[in-house]
């Protein structure tokens, strides 16, 4: 039985700007089921990052409602949102955004640490995950001593280590070369496949779009199409 991880209802984000307000997101309604591997594509300025920020509770919608699991996040306080992000949402950023003063292991275990997981368990889980995604032996390196691909894999590890209901990835392969981007995508696919992690990522990259099980096209802040492409995922439909 499918379980809805994300649901939005007539989502709008308008930035007040002179001379005319900018409508970054216009009436987006979508549902994502647990275990889906969803790509959100669209040209620059189509509202992909804004949608991800809205779903992650990093910015509040001008209008509309968002549910993550059972929680309607548009009604939560900043503190409750922080708790929800900690327990239910993982983020992967285009620019990696690892904390530069922490080692790879410390970055990856960060969310577990915020949750108060004991050190021994944190380290065990990170080492297991690092082995799975090809980062073993790099635990003590600071981000500055890692390649772009390695940094992004640490960022993915950080996003999934707490087994969140949803991972939001904002153009995760954009700063990587082709081979590294493909390898990272493989890692994310494997985590989706083997661990059932739900991914929603924004992308420009046609190869990434091809490998998504469901592809949502955004144009000018609205969903232009929402198509199921693979074996996994829920309903897909053209708009």
């Amino acid at each position: 039985m499918n379980r809805t991880v994300v649901r939005t209802e007539d989502l709008w984000k308008v930035y007040p700007q002179e001379p005319k307000p900018v409508e970054a997101v216009r009436g987006v309604s979508l549902e994502i089921q647990a275990g889906e591997f969803v790509a959100m594509a669209g040209p620059s300025g189509s509202g992909k990052t804004t949608v991800l920020n809205l779903l992650g509770g990093l910015t509040r919608p001008t209008r509309g409602r968002i549910w993550i699991g059972e929680d309607e996040i548009t009604a939560l306080s900043d503190r409750e949102l922080a708790r929800l992000r900690l327990e239910s949402i993982g983020f992967v950023f285009q620019a990696f955004n690892l904390l530069p003063v922490l080692t790879a292991l410390e970055n990856a275990e960060f969310t577990l640490l915020l949750r108060g997981v004991p050190a021994e368990e944190r380290h065990r889980r990170v080492r297991e995950l690092f082995a799975l995604i090809g980062l073993d032996g790099l635990e003590d390196r600071k981000p500055g001593k890692l390649s772009g691909g390695q940094q992004q894999r640490v960022a993915v590890a950080r996003a999934v280590i707490g087994e969140p209901a949803l991972v939001l990835a904002d153009e995760p392969t954009a700063n990587l070369d082709t081979a590294t981007g493909a390898a990272l995508l493989e890692v994310m696919e494997r985590l989706n496949h083997e661990n059932g992690v739900t991914f929603l990522f924004s992308t420009h990259d046609p190869r990434v779009m091809e490998r998504a099980h469901r592809l949502i096209h955004l144009v000018d802040g609205s969903v232009e199409s929402d198509v199921a492409q693979g074996v996994r995922g829920g309903v897909g439909h053209d708009r």
């Binding site: 900043d78 503190r79 922080a82 708790r83 992000r85 900690l86 955004n97 904390l99 950080r158």
Partner: peptide, 16 residues
């Protein structure tokens, strides 16, 4: 600024 934003995105509270 960006690092503070990352901490918030990962579930850190304003207090942290």
């Amino acid at each position: 600024r960006r690092e503070f934003a990352v901490v918030r995105a990962l579930g850190g509270t304003p207090g942290s």
